[in-house]
Each structure stands twice: as C-alpha cells, then as structure tokens.
C-alpha cells in the first residue's frame, strides 16, 4: 500500500515503511521526479509560480505562497495515500522542510481523509524507540 509519512522527509519513517513491505510516499521521491524528469524552470526545487497557484486546491489565496507551494507538491501525495503514519514531537528540524503551518494542514487533511492512520511519538530513548517501532510494525503488517 502507499503510505504517506509525516514528516514527509523522514529517513526513519521512510526506512521503516519500506522495510515492512509497503511503498512510502515521500517528499524526496516527489521532488526527485520534479528535479530530474523535466526541464528545470525554477531551480532548485522546480516549484514554479504556476505550481503555487495549483496549491489553491488545498489552501486559499489568503494563505502565504510558501504554504501553497508546499501543498502543490504534497497535496497530491495525500490524494494518493492509502494509509498514513504521523510522527509527533519531532525535533524541530523535522517537518515539511520548514513550515509548521503546512504541517498542521497536512495532518488535518490526512485525518479528514479517514484512511488507516497511526500516530506515534518521536523516540527520545531506546525504550521509546521500541514502542514506536513495534507500533509501526503492527500497523503496517495489519494493512496487508
């Protein structure tokens, strides 16, 4: 199944989803298609002002352009997602590469979609690591 991960650029979540037999939907994968597949109009991410307008599907015109641009990239991933893992309490460097408002909107959209979703906490020690990994494993195996 296609699993949306949140934060969408997490190494840990990407690895675990793939390790336990599913396809992670990640921002890196989406951006990779963007930066290597077609002509580069707007380096570095190739998010063009026209893409930012496409983000209007997910957030209104009064929402800052940076959020709409992010949603233009990540919104379609949520549309595609069949299940999701949300990780909370991530250290600050996590998140949609920068904007917490976008994070909040993404989480809301995932929950609204009512796909199977698990919410876990970022581990701060080995014991919490065990809890998180076992929860994710059980969740992913249950999806098969």
């Amino acid at each position: 199944m296609k699993i949306f991960i949140m934060p969408p650029n997490s190494l840990i979540l990407y690895d675990l989803v793939e390790r336990f037999g599913h396809q992670p939907l990640s921002v890196m994968g989406t951006l990779r298609e963007r930066v290597s597949g077609r002509e580069m109009e707007s380096p570095p991410l190739n998010v063009t002002p026209a893409d930012v307008t496409k983000g209007l599907k997910y957030a209104g015109i009064e929402v800052p352009s940076g959020i709409r641009g992010r949603m233009a990239v990540w919104g379609p991933m949520i549309d595609e997602a069949e299940a999701a893992i949300i990780m909370h309490d991530t250290p600050f460097t996590f998140g949609c590469v920068g904007c917490h408002r976008t994070n909040l909107l993404l989480m809301h959209l995932i929950r609204k979609k009512k796909i199977p979703t698990i919410e876990v906490n970022y581990p701060e020690d080995e014991e919490e690591g065990k809890i998180m990994v076992s929860k994710i494993k059980t969740f992913l195996e249950g999806l098969k």
Binding site: P44, S65, G66, G69, R70, C99
Partner: peptide
Amino acid sequence: SCGTEYSGIQSE
C-alpha cells in the same frame, strides 16, 4: 529566508 523555494522565486 523562509518560503522562497516553495514560492518558486528562489531562482529570481
């Protein structure tokens, strides 16, 4: 800065 890349204006 924040948001220049996802606003499509970094190259500008």
